[in-house]
Design a binder for these strands. Structure first.
Lengths: 74, 74
DNA sequence: ACTATATGTCAAAGAAACCTTACATTAGAG
DNA sequence: CTCTAATGTAAGGTTTCTTTGACATATAGT
């Protein structure tokens, strides 16, 4: 049962869609470190709610287009 | 400059709208402690992204109807 | 070959979120 | 008034997120 149950994200594809924005630039715009972007993008942990909102804002999409909560059931 | 810049939420009104659900019951459903619900509801800190998704799910509304990111502007 | 850019790993430390326990206050029911 | 349910406060401890800094790898350009 219970695996980590973390939110998944589409940051990587959104970055490429956004003129191949680099991790460093995204980090810059969101005002976190590059390490943090890497970790989030790889799903090693979930971002804070604030950070999630800021990332969505950078890509100009709603939050739930970047982050999805897996249906827990199963 | 930089005030806390935290996300605001509508948990309290959503609780009352949802047949006056208590903090204890919400905590139960989201599987956190009552203290945590109190702190979030009062805006003392923001929830994790997972918790934000779960709360929205309990109320059957999209996440951004529970939590809003203040326009940083200025 | 050398340099720069982009991505990635690791470790240690700090900050923020969450838990546990205990107690205080208020309002309503009996 | 007494009892209970709902909300709130506070302290101390654990977990998770974020930062800092140092280094590794791969690719593209000169």
């Amino acid at each position: 049962m219970g695996r980590p149950m973390r939110v998944i994200n589409k940051i990587r594809s959104l970055r490429f869609a956004a003129d191949e924005m680099t991790q460093a630039e995204l980090a810059d715009r969101v005002k976190v470190t590059r390490q943090t972007i890497i970790a989030i993008e790889q799903g090693r942990y979930s971002p804070s709610l604030e950070m999630a909102f800021q990332i969505a804002k950078v890509f100009r999409v709603p939050l739930d287009e970047v982050f999805q909560y897996p249906d827990e059931d199963a």
